[in-house]
Each structure stands twice: as C-alpha cells, then as structure tokens.
Design a protein around this nucleic acid. Structure first.
Length: 992
RNA sequence: GCCUCGGUGGCGGAAUUGGUAGACGCGCCGGAUUCAAAAUCCGGUUCUAACGAGUGUGGGUUCGAUUCCCACCCGAGGUACCA
C-alpha cells in the first residue's frame, strides 16, 4: 500500500472544495481564457466511462492554461429540461423537478470524484427559474425585432411600424413570410390593432404561424427538423407525420447567409462545418415565372439550371402546392384528388422508402414557356417537395434524372438541348462538358455564360430573377410537453402578447397530470393557476379569465435547445438578477476560447446557439458574432459487449432435400456453447450434442435423431467477465434464474465469451462505470487512461484491462520519491546511494518532456503526452534521480493530467499554494543539445553501417569525413559515388 | 449517389517542412522473487527457418515515401427525390 490514491484523492478533492481553488473572478488583471464543455443532460443512468472523455480533455487544457498564467473560466452546469424526466413523471406521477434534482446530485458526485477543476460557484441549471428567466427574456427580445436585409441585421419592431405608418411595407427588405401581401400606408393605418399585430407576426424573428410541422403522435409533440432522422423521431424512433399546426417558430432563415459566412472565420472541425453547410444548403439559381394558360395565375419555380430552360417539356407541382386545386380541370379533378389524398396519407418515411417508384398525375392545365410560348402540361408529382424552393419545378428531362424518369414513365417528350450528347439512356446532368443546342439565343454557350444570359433576359422581361435558395427551414419552437420553459406569452383576442419583463420568470405551474388534456391541449392545459392578470401583474386561476383584464397563457413549452442556446454567456455572470449578464462581464470574457463536445449537436445546438449569438450581437448585447472560436469534437468511447451463445434445442419437424422446419422443444437453454469457433469444431457435432442433451434430459428420448441446435447470441454483463474473456459461470447462473440449469460447454475448464464492440448502453450490458474504476485504480489513473486510449477526436473501444499500464506508471512515479517501510518522502536528501544533483542526463530528460508535453497540449494530442511521462519516469527511475530540481517542474507538468498525485507531491515538496497556481516550466533547448550523433550511413538507400559524427560539422565536413571512412571505401570498392546526400542530424546517403 | 474522416504488428496506437517504421501501453513468451498465487521487477516480442518482405491495392515523383501526386479497394460517420 504505497501509493494510496484513495486517501490522496479524497484529501485533495476536499481541499479544493474548501478553498475554492478553481473559482475564477471577473475582475482579474490576468488575461482570460474560457474553456467550456457541453453541459450534460442528467439522466437517471448516471455517467459511464465514455461521458467524461471530453471533460478530462478540457480539464487538462484549463489546468494547463492556469499554469500559463491565464485567468481561466471553466464552468459546468446541467441541461436539465427534457423528455426522460417527463416520461418518468408520466409513469410514476413524480414531479420531474424531483427526479432531475436527484440525478443532478448523482452526476455531481461522479464528476467530483474525477477531480475536475470546475468553478462550481457558476453552476447553471436550465430548469432553474432564475436561469430560464433569461431564456424567456431572450424570447421576448426575439419577438420585438424584425430582420432588415438592407442593414443585414435585426432591428426593433418599432422601426418597422414607423415605416409602415409612412410608406406601408413597400421598400422594406425584410426576412418575412413568403405570402406577405403588399400593404400601403393607408391600408396599414386603417387596420385594426388585431390585424396589425397579426401582420407584424410575419416579420418578427419569433412568430406564431400555421405551419406544416413534424408531428410525432407517440411522443405527443412536434419536433424540429434536426430531431427527425429518416422519418422517425431521434428520441425513441417513433414515426413522424406532417401536420398543420399553429406553432411558435424561430426565423433562423433570416440568418442563413451569416451562419454560412461565419463558418469561415472559426476554428471548428471540418466535418462539423460541412454538416452545417449542408444543412443550410445554399444554392444559387433563378426564380422563373410561367404563366398559366386561360387563367391569371402563374407558377413560380426555383431552378439552379436556368440555362436549360429550352429543355423544359412540362411542369411539376408538389401535391401540397396551393395552386393544385385552383388549376385542376374538371376532367382531372377526381384523379388529382385521389392522388393528393393518397400522398397525404403516406408518411415521410414511406415516401423515402420507395424512391424508385415514379408516381404523378396530370392536372389538365397548361403553362406557357416564357421564351418559346409553347404549351407545357402541368403535372403533380410527389418527388417535388412542398417545403423546398417554391414547391414547383420546371421539368427538364434531358438534364435531370428525376424529370427524365418521370417523362419516360408518363410518355412525355424529352427534347435534347445538349450538343452531341446521347440522352437515350439517361439524363445528362453535368454542368460542364457540352454546349447548348436547340436553345435559341443560348445556342453554343456553356453553362456559366448561358446562365448569366438567361437570367439577364428574364430580368428584362420580368419573368424571373436571380435568387439564392436555402434548404434551412425556420425552426419550430413549440413543444407540447410539461418539462420545459413556459413561454412568457398570453393571448388577447387570439393575438400573442408578451409578459412584462419585470414579471419574469414566468414559473412553470403545478399540474395534476403530465399528459395532454382530454381536449388535446398540452399538459399545461391541466394547470389550474395559469392565467395572466394584466392589471395586477400576476398569474391567477383559469376561472377568472375574462379576456379583458385576465387572459389565457400559452400552453406550449420551449424545446430542449432553448436553454442551451445562451448558457455559455450566462456562465460569465450567472447570479446577476438585473441583467442577463453585465456588460463588464461580457466585455472581459467575450467568447469561449475552447468548446469541447460531441458532433451529434452539429445541426442542433451548435447551429441554434450561433443563431442566438448573432441575434444578440445585432442588439449590441455581445461583442462578438461567434461565441466559440474553437470547437473540438471528442470521439465516442465504445463498449466491448460480451456474449454467450444460447444453444436452443429444436426438433426437426420436416426435413426434405435440404429444407427443414424446426419447432423449439423448449425455451429452456439447455446448453450454452463457448463461442462460434468452438461450435464449428468437429467434436461438437449435432450427434454429440444430442447425446449430451439426452443424457441430461432423458425425457426427451422420444426425439432421438430429430434434435437440432441453433445458437442465439445473448448479451452478458461485462462485470461477470474476468481475466480478459473468461465468464464467471457461477455468478452468471445466479444472475438469471433461467440459466440456473444451463449446461456450459467448457474448454480447459473455462468459458470464453464472444466479443463485439458496440455503443455503450445499459441495454447491452456493456457499461463500465467510472465509479468502479476510481475505486480500483483512482481518478488519476482513469484520467490518464482515457487520454492514453487514443486520439481525442476518434471513437475507440473501452478495455479496462489496459488501465494497469498507466496505473503502474503512477505507482512508479510515487515510489521513486518514497522508500522504506514507513514510506518516507525523499527528495534531494540522499541516504547514501542517491544521486542528488540534476546531472546533464536528467536535465535532458526533463526538458525533452517539457517540450513534447507542451507541443502535445497545443495540438490536443493528449495521448502521446502520457507516453512521454512514462518514458520520463522510467529514465529517472533507472538513474535513481530524486533531485528537487527535476521533480518540481515535473510535478507541474503532470498536474493537468493527474492533479491529485501532483498536489500531494507538491505539498510534500513544501509548497503552501496549490500546484495549479504554479507557473508552467520553461523549456530550455540548451539541455537537449548533443555534441555528436550516430549517423546511419546508407548506400543507395540501404543502411550499411553507422558512424559517430560531431554535430558541429557542416554538411561538407560530414561528407568529407564519411568519404574518408574506411568502411565507406570498402563499400564503394573503387567506384566513384554519383552523389552524397547529407541531412544534418539525420542521415548520410551515398548514391552510387 | 454526394460529403467527411480513416486503413500501420495479436490489440489500442506512435512517427509528416519526405530521412533508421512500429514509440508508449495492453496481450503473449521467458526469467527473478514466492511454499504457492497475486502483486512487483528484469528481458524478449512486425512477419519469415533463412534470404528477405513490410504502413489497404496498383502506379508515379524522389538518392530515399506511412508522409507528396494519380487511379482504385475497403471501413466508419453524416446526408439526400433539395430542382
């Protein structure tokens, strides 16, 4: 019991908490550095070893920066609103606040055990009213602005109202709803208050609108686009359907271009930037108007290939397109209605599933080509999406594969407009490689020039214009759930109004039930005290609602990403009750310098929070437009699942010529076979197995000759596997009653489990808890090992066995300075045999380590640092070096990685202050200087011998010395070398 | 299909302005210690009997390529009737 990590770690965790060692202050003279982790959702399962990976990395960096003299902000908190707590509340009736609090305290315990240097005085919880007060406050700010495309920023809604009063909405370049009609000043002034308010909703950055939303019936709520994966919900995998609902939305599309441009100036991982770029999906093209024959209507389409306009042979509308019912001819009405209804019934998922099938229907209407005047039939097809572009396309079968397939299927013409291209088999969709033909004024032009010309012509005639289209949609902001932030909104005459900010927070009401009401209202509909008394400025009972003084409050709550979109700024001044954060605090901390978290938030949290930051920047609340200058995505730590193979016993019922059907004889697992390899061994044939079964279960004798086996893999808890892959059979039998009478097929008296690497999860029984690791090896070992596993950004499987390596390194490190039966600490006090002074070799070891570790931290290559420490301690041990001159800097160097052992040694060295305040040791290159080196001498690239050469020699002198060497002459054997290549300090290569 | 990342011993992984491939750890083998085991310590460990070969494959540039270029194969992740 020499290195007593339990005692050491408990001691320092206590001292850090008592002395508030890692508290950071806003009034420091030092330069600031802000290291942030994505705060966790405190789930009931607690942490597994995968969760702390990013926290360990950020902690190392934060501690390193402290050594470097920075005032480091390294906070932690909880993203505490969310579905699992609510789901649990529905099942048990327990208030989500209670389970959330319990989960948080368990998380805190686990985090504390790992020795993180968080400043807990700044902790935030998104479900805390003192915190969500400011989430609600931002919502109100978003409501009170519109986006001016001319100044390219958000401006107060009052400025827009002034403009409407004078000029109506002409000359307003705003981000607004697409269907916003033109309104003159006279019309505006004549509008009722109610109509004015409804009109303004089309401009506000957060607005209430009837929109098609992703409705998840199983979860009973709407979901944002990023919460829907392949037509099912991200959480739980439930089907999602499109539904029209009145919902709050965030006009994130106003910021599409700035969100895209902002990516250029921030140091974020390329895959993350790419994910955001694709999600925003900017495409440049043209909007073209096609007049409909025989009616005043027109179809507006978006195309990225206006150059192919002479190849249009028909038009296609999305089934949900507004024009569909207006233009359909009486003859086609029935067919169209049937098609539209059928499409509406098919879920998004079905539509995605069979994308080979071509479906569509003719409306009977014709549009006119803007240049040729030709009649173009107007079709409906579900390959056209209502939500993208204008929900209508001009179909160019020769240049687009979908149009091509559609045309072929419905026998529509496929005119060719490409010079010398064969389109008999498929469409030609390359932009380059050919010139246009059959295209009137575009003949002989390539893609680029033709596009410019045609847009110019369209703009002249007023039939079209150049446009930029984005895939990004406005984000739905309402959730029909209980456990989220209430909207600070009440309704007057059906018009949403904001609560006065002085009344915030609007606290989540108590409800009798967490399920929706019987009339289908969200759970807040169950709250009895949920109405706004405008005169008294307080929340009162529903029964008093009179729509004059007392109004109903909004029943939806905000989505999970609301609280996480501003927390990083709130950490700067978390207890401020007057403002979201003081201007001094934000001016000092400015932005996050390093943000570590998972890439799964690429198109969710990491996009929405950038949007809010830009909005707050426009309002002058924050000094920078991007809140995180550098992001690192840590990889996932995977679990190594263990399997047993349950050999099911079947009776052959019918076996004819290779085909057979089997009936299970029993669900009892009579036998458990070792693994796949053993099953294939010839000894365990079905006959042998049958004998074993019949010996053990004589009552099955009647089935003799007809018994067959089938192996089913079954997860077994990894805690029951010892010494690598050996199963603890007796523990396993105790764990599951159904296995009590199982027979195990052993090899050398061992049962070896099957292995597979999977995501770490409770249901796969492969979870390794950090608590167990801390108990057996200590937090320092766990920290070192998680870093040692591999590159931070890479996913890697967990293997507990490997931790002994780093653990014995710590023991070795400890032992170097402790000896004797009573564990005396020795440094620079040689009892006889010790070498005291730091000699050249040891100084070299130290500075080599300083150099490498500092480089590694700068590159976030924490894994190789750990190796460097091991080599360093091995070298010092082999020389029995216990010099204070070496140990002191070494302890500082190791402290970011293994802070507890470092503190303990630091204290033993006689320091009163925490090691975390000690300055990082300076690298001195002079100690690494060598005077000579073994040079490898190679001939034609092949190594022949090595010779010692002084490093002071010049290239020419080395060459001379090598050529004069006896062995060189031997090799050359009288020939003359063509060339001698000398790389100073590395190699000499003689080419002959 | 498109985008991104990756491919090096039995395993996790080192090494890039191109310069002795396999650092460090795990595992394995051998030894010391022990009545024995655990723990600990020391040594060995890419493959091959050897010659030699060797960083996914095939080319190229170079005196020299894991590193640079071209083509391809495989794996992981993301994304998509996006006009």
């Amino acid at each position: 019991m020499s290195y007593n990590f339990k005692e050491i770690e408990a001691k320092w965790q206590r001292i850090w908490a008592e002395r508030q060692t890692f508290r950071s202050y806003n009034d420091s003279e030092k330069e600031k550095f802000y290291v942030l982790d994505m705060f966790p959702y405190p789930s009931g399962a607690g942490l597994h070893v995968g969760h702390p990976l990013g926290y360990i990395a950020s902690d190392i960096y934060a501690r390193y920066k402290r050594h470097k003299g920075y005032n480091v902000l390294h906070p932690m908190g909880y993203d505490a609103f969310g579905l699992p707590a609510e789901q649990y509340a529905i099942e048990t009736g327990q208030h989500p606040a209670i389970t959330t609090r319990a989960n948080i305290s368990r998380y805190r315990e686990q985090l504390d055990r790992l020795g993180f240097s968080f400043d807990w005085s700044r902790e935030v919880r998104t479900s805390d009213p003192a915190y969500y007060k400011w989430t609600q406050w931002i919502f109100i700010q978003l409501f009170n602005v519109w986006y001016n495309r001319e100044s390219d920023k958000a401006e107060t809604i009052q400025s827009l109202i002034e403009h409407f009063k004078k000029e109506g909405n002409s000359n307003v370049h705003a981000a607004c709803d697409e269907d916003t009609p033109a309104v003159s000043a006279g019309q505006w002034n004549a509008m009722s208050w109610k109509d004015q308010q409804k009109f303004l909703l089309k401009y506000r950055l957060t607005y209430l609108a009837d929109s098609e939303v992703n409705w998840c019936p199983a979860l009973g709520t709407v979901l944002a686009n990023d919460e829907v994966i392949n037509g099912v919900s991200e959480r739980g995998g439930h089907p999602v359907v499109r539904k029209k609902m009145t919902q709050w939305s965030m006009r994130i599309t106003a910021y599409a271009q700035r969100l895209l441009q902002g990516l250029e100036n921030i140091d974020w991982p390329q895959p993350l930037k790419d994910a955001q770029t694709n999600w925003i999906g900017r495409s440049v093209g043209a909007e073209v108007r096609f007049l409909l024959e025989g009616s005043g209507e027109d179809i507006r389409v978006f195309t990225t290939r206006p150059d192919t306009i002479f190849g249009v042979s028909f038009m296609t509308l999305a089934p949900e397109h507004d024009l569909v019912h207006k233009i359909t001819t009486p003859e086609q009405r029935e067919a169209v209605k049937a098609y539209v209804d059928a499409t509406a019934l098919r879920s998004e998922r079905d539509r995605l599933a069979d994308n080979d099938r071509v479906t569509g229907v003719f409306t009977g209407a014709y549009a006119r080509h803007p240049f040729t005047g030709k009649s173009l039939p107007v079709w409906i097809g579900d390959f056209v999406l209502a939500g993208y572009g204008t929900g209508a396309v001009m179909s160019v079968p020769c240049g687009d594969q979908r149009d091509y397939d559609f045309a072929k299927h419905f026998h529509l013409p496929v005119p060719n407009i490409f010079e010398g291209v064969d389109i008999s088999g498929e469409a030609f969709s390359d932009k380059d490689g050919t010139l246009l033909a059959n295209s009137d004024f575009l003949n002989g032009l390539g893609y680029k020039e033709a596009t410019q010309r045609v847009i110019a012509r369209l703009e002249e005639t007023g039939d079209g214009r150049r446009t930029v289209n984005y895939r990004l949609r406005d984000a739905v902001f309402s959730r029909q759930r209980y456990w989220g932030e209430p909207f600070p909104v009440y309704y007057e005459e059906g018009v949403p109004r904001m609560l006065p900010t002085t009344h915030l927070p609007l606290v989540l009401p108590e409800v009798a039930k967490y399920l929706p009401t019987e009339s289908g209202d969200p759970p807040l509909g169950n709250a009895r005290i949920w109405a706004w008394d405008r005169e008294q400025h307080k929340v009162v009972g529903n029964e008093f609602i009179d729509h004059k003084k007392i109004f109903p409050l909004e029943l939806n709550t905000m989505p999970g990403w609301a609280g996480s979109s501003q927390y990083f700024n709130r950490y700067m001044d978390p207890h401020n009750e007057e403002v979201i954060f003081s201007s001094e605090a934000i001016a000092y901390w400015k932005q996050v310098d390093l943000y570590i978290g998972g890439i799964e938030h690429a198109t969710g949290h990491l996009l929405y929070s950038r949007f809010w930051q830009k909005f707050m920047f426009d309002l002058g609340l924050v000094p920078v437009e991007e809140y995180a200058s550098k992001v690192i995505n840590q990889g996932m730590i995977l679990g190594t699942s263990a399997f047993v193979f349950r050999r099911m016993v079947y009776e052959v019922v019918d076996e004819v010529a290779g085909t057979a059907s089997y009936e299970p004889l029993s669900t009892d697992p009579y036998l458990v076979s070792r693994n796949k390899a053993l099953q294939s061994e010839s000894y365990f044939t079905d006959e042998v197995m049958e004998d074993m079964v019949l010996t053990k279960y004589p009552d099955l004798a009647a089935y003799k000759g007809r018994i067959r086996f089938n192996d089913l893999p079954l997860h077994v808890d990894v805690s029951l596997v010892h010494g690598g892959d050996e199963l603890d059979i007796s523990a396993f039998k105790k764990m599951k009653t159904e296995f009590r009478k199982a027979e195990f097929i052993l090899e050398n008296n061992k049962y070896i489990v099957g292995r597979e690497v999977e995501k770490m999860s409770k249901s796969k029984y492969n979870v390794v808890s950090p608590d167990a690791i801390c108990k057996d090896f200590g937090a320092d070992s766990l920290r070192l090992y998680e870093m040692f596993l591999g590159p931070l950004e890479q996913s890697k499987p967990w293997n507990t066995a490997g931790i002994t390596g780093v653990h014995s390194f710590l023991k070795k490190f400890w032992r170097l300075y402790h000896s004797g039966p009573v564990e005396t600490f020795y440094v620079s006090e040689p009892p006889g045999e010790l070498k005291d002074a730091a000699d050249k070799d040891n100084l070299k070891t130290l500075h080599k380590t300083i150099k490498k570790v500092e480089e590694d931290i700068a590159n976030f290559s924490f894994n190789t640092s750990v190796s460097t420490f091991m080599i360093c301690v091995n070298e010092l041990t082999s020389r029995n070096c216990r010099s204070r001159e070496i140990l002191e800097p070494l302890v500082i160097l190791i402290s970011p990685y293994a802070p507890h052992i470092a503190e303990e040694l630091w204290e033993k060295l006689g320091h009163k202050e925490s090691v975390s305040t000690a300055p990082f040791p300076n690298f001195k290159p002079e100690f690494l200087k060598e005077t000579s080196k073994e040079y490898p001498i190679s001939f034609n690239g092949k190594l022949r011998f090595t010779m010692e050469l002084s490093l002071d020699l010049s290239t020419e002198e080395i060459e001379e010395a090598v050529m004069a060497h006896e062995k060189t002459r031997e090799q050359l054997d009288g020939r003359r070398p063509k060339k001698v290549i000398v790389v100073p300090g590395k190699i000499v290569n003689i080419v002959g």
